[in-house]
Structures are given as C-alpha cells and as structure tokens.
Simulated assay, not measured.
Amino acid sequence: MSDTAGTTDPTGILDEAFERLHGFGPERLGRLTNHAPMAVEALAARGQAGAVHRWLDRYAPKLEDLPAPVAPITVAERHTALGDPRRAADWIGHFGREIAARPWREVLAEWWPVLLPGMCGGSTHPVIRVGHAVRALAGGETTPRLAELAHGLGYWAARHRPVTGLAPLPGAVSAAEALDAVPPITDRAAGGFPDRLARVRGLPVWAASVTDPDQARRALAELVRAATHRYATHGHGDEVMLVHAATAPNAVLRALPALPRALWVPSLRAAWTASAAVTAMYAPDAPVAYEPRGSVAAAEVAELALAHGDEHVIKFTDTALDIGDERALAAALRAVELGEPLGWPGGRPVAGPR
C-alpha cells in the first residue's frame, strides 16, 4: 500500500484548483460536505490533473461561499469552540495563522490528538480532507497546499464530535472478521449520520492490544484493505456512506508519516471506531456474492472513476488504488456501478497527463 507518496503535479493545476476552491465553505445546504478539494487532489495524484478544472466546472455550482467569521479563536476558546460549526471560518483562519507562523507538521502534531476523538464529526469528511492535504504537502509545500491543510483542520475543529459510551463487544483477530462482527444499529432506514451515530451502542474490540507504533501502522493498513474489500460485497447497503469505512482510516494512514510515532497507536484506535461505526450504521442486511472482475489495469479503473465523475467514487477509487490488488479494484468498479454519475457536458472527459 502506498501511504507515503506525495501528490506531484508539475502542471501546477492542483494549486490552481485549491486557490479556486478556498473561497468556498467546507459545507453546503447546512450539512452536506464540499468534496471538491479532496476529489481534485485524488485526481491529480492519479495522473488526471488535466481533467481537474473541467470536473470543477461541473461540481462548483453546488458550492456555497465561505461563511462569515464570528470572531478570532482565542486561547480560552481552543477547546470550548470545538464542535461549533458556526465557527468554521474562525477555525480556518486560526489554522491559517498557525501554519503561517510555524512548520505545518508541528501544528498537525499539536492538534492531531485534540481532534482525533472527534473524527466522526462531519461524517468523517474533515479527517479525510486533512489526509488528502497531507499527501499533497508531501509532494510540495506550496502556499495553496498549506492553505488547504488549514481549511481541513478548521473543518475538523468545527465539526468535532467525540463518540463516547461505547460498550466493548467480543471482537476478532483480523480486521475483516472484526468488521463482519459489527452489530447493525436499530432502524437503519431512519435518520442521517448524526442520528445514526447516536444509536451506535457498542463495537467489537479489535487491535486493542496493539502498543507498538509499527504494529499500529500495519494494523491500520489491514483495516483499510479489509474495509475496501468489503465494499465489493456490502456497498449496496449505502453506496455513498459505506465508502467512508475505508476512506476515513486511509486518511489517517496517509497522515502517519507526518506525525510523531507516539500518535500512531491512538490513531489506529480512532480509525477503527470510525470505520466500525460507519459499518454499523449502513451495512446491508446481507452481502452479495463476490464477483471477480478478472485482469483489469489500475489505470483503467482510474479512468472509469473520472468518467463517472461522482466525488465519492473518485475518492474511494483513490483508496482502492493505494491497495491495488484484484479485490480492491473490483470494489472500485462496484462503486462505479452503484454510484450516481456526476455527468459531463459533451461526454466523457479527456484524461490528463500521466
């Protein structure tokens, strides 16, 4: 699994896209997430930078302007303002100033343990945005990429939502078996993500005995692989929301190289809670049989995701390509089949340089 490579884009298109997007808020219509920064980074990372602006032309009309700030975040508010979505612009401004004043890895290391317990806030999208920003920065510390990290961290702080009071349930040895052991919540047809999350009462214990950072990293990679593979047979439970069972822990995995090793074990535990909670909230009543897809090239799968255009399909395919095995690519193709295409005026887009 490729969790350390940065997003290199000699065309400069990714930075242009970030600059284009930073006048928009992290959400729209009250709670829906602005996925564009994550999707354009994924496209650039997969050699599709040439299609980024055309994709944005199609997606950007959905977006809303960055909300007006309330007041600068003070030292006294650093914890009390966590989880207040009305302060999104304030938090983005706060992290912008922090990152301008000192190295971004230092800021990330300070705030990661503060934000980590609230990883499920915003339906896990804030941590995913941060993971994409960290990968972009690994490919070059440009001003737009630093600003993107500030937006991601600010969104995470504004939507911070801890998950507490979960009963530890019998677990399993492997991540795949542990995901299979996750009990579904009651009344899975009712409510959005916050309401469903409140109905998660207990999750299986998995990897709780891990104390070594390197072991935690391996376990996290195992979780990403298991959740990605599982989508091939369970994605029909909710074709959109179940991608986050894989993309959220993968965002954490991508961030690990930029974090102190002391934070890797708690990162694993938070990622497991998020992935298992999403599984509990949206898993189907029964899986479908796994359908092998035979030999399919990773580049072809990336092209199909771009042609489909849906932001969740693009991001899930990006995670599946990190794994790269036959079942992961089959899961990405399953997402292409299940998801609603974004649609492209004039037909299928032309891919960018590889």
Rank of each mutant, 00 (worst) to 15 (best):
G23R: 14
M281A: 11
V173K: 12
D187S: 14
G93P: 08
F24E: 03
V210Q: 05
F316D: 04
G343H: 12
L153P: 01
R86V: 15
E77N: 06
R159K: 14
M241R: 14
T228K: 11
T143H: 06
T273K: 09
R135K: 13
V210E: 00
H53G: 09
A100V: 01
L108M: 10
A258D: 13
R20V: 01
R261F: 01
E239N: 12
R334M: 06
H79C: 08
R348Q: 12
T211R: 15
R46A: 07
R31A: 14
W112H: 14
T279F: 09
A60F: 06
A274Q: 10
E311Q: 14
G12S: 01
A36N: 00
G93T: 07
A81C: 10
D84I: 11
P341S: 05
A251K: 02
A274H: 11
A51P: 09
A133W: 06
P113Q: 06
L115F: 08
A147H: 06
R129D: 14
S295D: 13
A289Y: 07
T80E: 13
W272A: 10
A246C: 03
E19H: 09
R87D: 00
E19I: 01
A248T: 01
D214V: 05
A147I: 00
R254L: 15
V224H: 10
I185N: 01
P349M: 07
C120E: 11
A289R: 14
V127K: 04
G50K: 08
A298I: 08
A221H: 10
A39R: 02
L263Q: 15
P341K: 05
P184K: 03
L333R: 12
E16R: 15
E300L: 12
V163S: 09
A51I: 05
D57T: 13
A178Y: 05
H125M: 02
V173N: 10
A207E: 09
A307F: 10
T8S: 13
G121F: 06
G140T: 08
R135P: 09
A221M: 02
V205K: 06
L242P: 03
G347R: 09
V224Q: 10
R86Y: 08
A274C: 08
